[in-house]
Each structure stands twice: as C-alpha cells, then as structure tokens.
Design a binder for these strands. Sequence first.
DNA 1: GTGTCGGCCGTCTGCCGACAA
DNA 2: TTGTCGGCAGACGGCCGACAC
Lengths: 395, 395
Amino acid sequence: MKLSACLNQQSPEGEKSCLNSELWHACAGPLVSLPSLGSHVVYFPQGHSEQVAVSTNKEVDAQMPNYQSLPAQLVCQLHNVTMHADIETDEVYAQMTLQPLNAQEQKEVSFLPADMGVASKQPTNYFCKTLTASDTSTHGGFSVPRRAAEKVFPPLDFSQQPPAQELIARDLHNNEWKFRHIFRGQPKRHLLTTGWSVFVSAKRLVAGDSVLFIWNEKNQLLLGIRRANRPQTVMPSSVLSSDSMHLGLLAAAAHAAATNSRFTIFYNPRASPSEFVIPLAKYIKAVHHTRVSVGMRFRMLFETEESSVRRYMGTITGISDSDPVRWPNSHWRSVKVGWDESTAGERQPRVSLWEIEPLTTFPMYPSPFPLRLKRPWPSGLPSYAGMKIDDMGLN
Amino acid sequence: MKLSACLNQQSPEGEKSCLNSELWHACAGPLVSLPSLGSHVVYFPQGHSEQVAVSTNKEVDAQMPNYQSLPAQLVCQLHNVTMHADIETDEVYAQMTLQPLNAQEQKEVSFLPADMGVASKQPTNYFCKTLTASDTSTHGGFSVPRRAAEKVFPPLDFSQQPPAQELIARDLHNNEWKFRHIFRGQPKRHLLTTGWSVFVSAKRLVAGDSVLFIWNEKNQLLLGIRRANRPQTVMPSSVLSSDSMHLGLLAAAAHAAATNSRFTIFYNPRASPSEFVIPLAKYIKAVHHTRVSVGMRFRMLFETEESSVRRYMGTITGISDSDPVRWPNSHWRSVKVGWDESTAGERQPRVSLWEIEPLTTFPMYPSPFPLRLKRPWPSGLPSYAGMKIDDMGLN
DNA sequence: GTGTCGGCCGTCTGCCGACAA
DNA sequence: TTGTCGGCAGACGGCCGACAC
C-alpha cells in the first residue's frame, strides 16, 4: 500500500483541497466535515487513540504509561489539511498539521469570530449503489438504477437503437475509466457493459461494496468506491507494534504541546469511531453553552447504507469520565446513553457532547437534578488559557 | 494487509517457532539469524528507526526531539520471538518481546555462558529460482531447472510416458498448493503446469520475483516467495504519521528502559538495512575484543541474487559517531568504510563493528595509529551496569 | 424496476513440441 | 539446458433478452 500522490486537479485556491474535494467528501460520507484551514480546533488524543486501536485491531494496553504532561484536549490551530486516498484501496483519509496554542494565544482566541466548520457539502448530482452479485460477477455488467442514470449520466440519444454512449469517469487518483453505457433489454434498463469488469477487478470490488457516480458542475463524471464494512478489513502493518503506535501519538502530541510546535495526524473517516479534531466553536457551544442532564432526550445523526443520514433517538443515562484513570475530566465520550431502537451493539454506549442534539422540549424522564458540568464554566468571557489548567485535564 | 495467524504447525518445543522455521529462514535469506529465546541481546533504537524510515519511506525529521533518558543501546533479555508472514504479501518478519536489564542484572550477565546466536540454518534440499517472463505469463507454466527438480522434487516414475506426478506444497501460511509436475518436451525438461497460474496470480508474482521450494526431512514440500526489490514497494500506511512512529519506538524503548518492563518490536529482515537486535556476546566480542583501526582491511557478507552469500572486501576509512547529535557515543554504524568494488550506492558507507570481519593479517594501509575505541574498555571483568552510564550514550 | 439466469459467441488461458540461445 | 514462441483446444468472459420478484 502506498500513499496517494497529491493531485491538485482543482480548487487552485489551494484550500485544504489536494484531490477532488467533492469526490473525497462523497466517499467519506455525509457526516464527515473537515475543519477550515487556519481555524482553531480541539484535538483529542483519546479519539486519535481509538482510531489507532481500530486500525491496528488492538486495544490500547492497560500497561500503557500515562503522559502526565498531555491534557485530554489540545486547542490547536489547523495549519494544513489535505485530502488523500490510499493508492491500493482508495480508502479516503485526511492529513492535518496542528499547532497547539500557547496560553496567550488561547486568550486571544475568544475574540475571533466563531468558526463552526464547513458542513460537508455532499454533491447534488450523484448516486451511490451497493453492488449486487450480478454487478460483480464476471458474467455480466453493471445494472444502473433508472432514476440514477437519468439524473447523473448525460442523456442518451434515443434515435439510436439501442441508445448507447461512452462514459468517461475519473476516480480519486484522477485515473480515467471508460464504460459503455447502453439502454436495452426487455424491459428496458440502463447498463454499463464494456469496461465495467476491468474496473471491478482493478478495484477488487465484491458484492456489498458501493460505487458512487458524481456529475459535477464542470460536466465531469467522477467515480468513487466505498467498501463494505467487512470485519477484519483492517491492516495492522508489521512496521510498529500497536503499543508503540499508541505511545507515538501521545508522545507527538505531548511534545507539540510542550513546545507549541506543529504535529501531523491522519484522520480516517471510515475507520475512526468518531471525529477527534473538532472545530473549537463547536466544542465550546456543546460543552459550555448547552444544558444536558441525566434523563434528557437527544437525537444523533447516523449514516444509512445508501449514503444518506437518519436520526436515532436516545436518552442520556449518565455523565462521567470515559477513562477516569488515564484521562480524568475529559469531555471525550463523557455522556453515557441508551438508544431507543434496540438494534444495540452498533451504536456507541458513550458519546461526546458535540455529537448529539439535546431535546430540551418534552424530556421523557425529566431529571430533578439538571446539571451542566461537573465544573461549570465561569460566567463572563471564556478563558481558554485557564481552561487548559482548570478544565482540560492537566494533572 | 493483515497479520498472519500464528500457525504452530511444527517444533512443538515452541521455541520461537510459530510457523515453519525452515521456510521462514529460507525466505528471510541466508544472512538472517534470530537470537535465541531467553538470551541476552543489545537493542539499537537507531537501527529500529532506520527500519521504520525505510518502511514509511520517510527519513526521520530533523526536528525530532531527543529522548535524553534513552541510551543508544539497551541490553535486554529476549522474552519472546515469533516468526510471522504478512497475509497479503507473504513478507516475513519477526516479533520480539524485549526486557531491558536493570543494573544488577547487567552485572550478572557477564558470568553467563556466551550466546552468539544460532546461525540461520538454511535448508539443504531446496532451490530458489527467479521467475522469467515465460514463468509468469498466462501462456504457459513454470520451467523447473533440471538440477533443482532432481534434487528437491520426489523422483518421477519414468515408466509412464510422459512421466508426471502431482506435487503438493505448503506456503508460510500453511496453505496447500497443488501442481502438476511433468517431464516432457523436446529436449526433455521439468515443468509445473496445472495449478501454477493460480499460484502466480494469488501471490501476484511478476517476472523478477523468486520462488523457493524446500524438501524437508519430513518429506514435506514447502514453498516460499521472495519478491524483487521493487522501488517504492513500501507501505507507509495512513494510520500514523512517520514522525509519530519514530517517536513511538523511542518512547516505547525509553519507557521500558526506565521501568525495566517489556516492549515489543517487529524486525523486518528484507526491509531493514541492518539487524538491530544483536546477541550480547556477538556485540561484546566485536566492540570490546576486536582491534580495528583506520586503514584496516575487512570482509563483510552479502546475499547474492541466487540466495547464497558472498564476501565483499573493503577498507576502514574512519571511526566516528554516525549521529553525533542524537546518538553520541553509539556503536551503531560507527565504522566508515570504502568498498573495493566500485558498484557503489548499493553498500552502506557506514557499518557496525559486529557486521564485519577485520583482516588482521596483511593490512593494505597499515595505520601508524592503531586504535580500538574512543573510550577503551577497562581491562578485567566487563561491567555492563557501568557500560550503561559510561559507554552507552546516556546524556 | 432490477436481480439472476440460459444462450451464444469470441477471446484468452493454458498444454504441447519446435527452435534457438 | 531453458527461455520464448506458434499451434491448438477448451474454458471462461462478457453481451444479449427472458423471466420472475
């Protein structure tokens, strides 16, 4: 597996766009958004650690030493953010360069305009189909859903019999793929024939994986893939032990925090259980300007199989440290929740405040003890320098 | 890419053998040896760092902080060593669990019998062939060199016309591969036909890669592969930045050294420029009981393309720290050398003392200033506790 | 509307000896 | 001794509409 070359094919403004941004976001999913370049963010080593644990398929060792000097959250400036795709698997990921703010900078932050992060702009003219056994078999081509073909593909010339055209689509690596698009059969349907099997075998697609076609404003056809969540699809790599990787991310963050220097992380939206680089304004709003209490009802967004979103409902069952030993007083996954729909096991039993929308109207189990935080935020102007000592888990 | 399951198919004594030891060593090459389980070794973070740099295809950042508490070499006990092969690429690697010795243990070490490490026992009944274009094309099978077939494969029944048999070989993952072995053509030759192309495509072999057949004492046929050194065959992985990986290996070693606890490393013999876990006795002999001086002639073993060894000759041109800033007073690559054969670029300009055989007879350029070490070893009993402070690069 | 299948044709896989390096 | 090729037969890839859910 190699890293992608950084194809700067569009967005010459250079803003965090290294390869096609629409396609990257479409592959990443509707819930993924990247903080703006230059903005202030909160970085959570815990969340980063979770991603590494998933990627290496190994939980963090209980023997792991603590980094006493590393707070549970670091307020940083985002100096660089680039989108990438693994050259072997097309898995999307982002590289971010973060610089922890010093005390003075954290004080000044509160006077800057809030930046909640740009919402992930999902393209409008696109479709995503989960591949069937017939789609991936060598016996035939790809059956295009009718509405999808009419919305996303250029219109066919129906004076021909049968109507057909050649489609050229580009993937995340800017590679070109050619397909014969034909409208035939009884009943009539849209099919991709010649060229399709080459694509399937090159990308090693199997039934259950999804493909994604985008027709963008420049009249280009873009093509992405999203692999099914196969168990054990992970890649631990024999480069470094998972323990050393966990230590490495902590050491990198601790060193950067101690010296106010930059460090680099990878964010893997499809692998990571939760985003761990959060826009500062979003964090502040959720942690300091939102009332939550045990018994309160909330909603949370999840991605569906068809790449759209739906809300699941739940009830807050507790508010406590998710890892009291290693990360005391961290807001990471500080909210214990129960989900209404009992298809349990899929959804995390713990979430962070900025992931949920509390429903202040009609609480199902009104708590007699509404509480905001164990350490309520001082009224008046927020002090982020103070936060680092008072509220951010510095031991 | 996934890690291999640990197939304990033989050597029930369980000594560092997790999958077939003969096959692993054959794939690793004739120069690779693993220290014995329980023995004392010297671990070099610098060498480990080199391996990570090669694997991530990224040199260590000059900004990298120093670990003041981490010596340039750690005397450890080897608690566990298991052989593995990458499930995707069949690349061989070893996992070792090391425990740094405390001062008391280091003192006691000198009274234990020396363990120079077992030499890599290359199997006797084996052959290794680099694949030709014809071998890997879909047009035909595999042409077996005559001597190889006669030495390694079971004898054919020449009463049949043509003589043929089915061969069953097992790879590092204990997967079974069946081949039709036939002796035919004009002139007569040994060929593998049916089954060969399945193997080639499953392992994604291309011309230039090598295959390796072993006929062991249990009359089993073993089958390994060794890929050509394709440039950029490396896999940086988007899990962790290379900077964090470098920090991680240093942090893991530093923490283990500080607490005398165990840590785990991966050794990748085909990727790593040099072994970085050396039997203690080999280290002591090379560093403290060998005279080297500028101008001295030496030999060093290298692997040939055909999986055998040859010696290259050279002259010592200097003795100095390879990284005076980060690792002062380290013996890692402390010897600057020039090579007789000017096919330069292939061989390292710096080697470590334990990699070379100094030729004490007939030095080509006798130096008027023979020197042993910048800090000569005190005569009498070696003190490894003292070494840690005096000679092992503690800043 | 679309997933899977039988039918059918064409290409490519893969086994053979010829031939030359 | 062995790498590559032309020849050839059979397997599979891949395009088609039928049909059912």
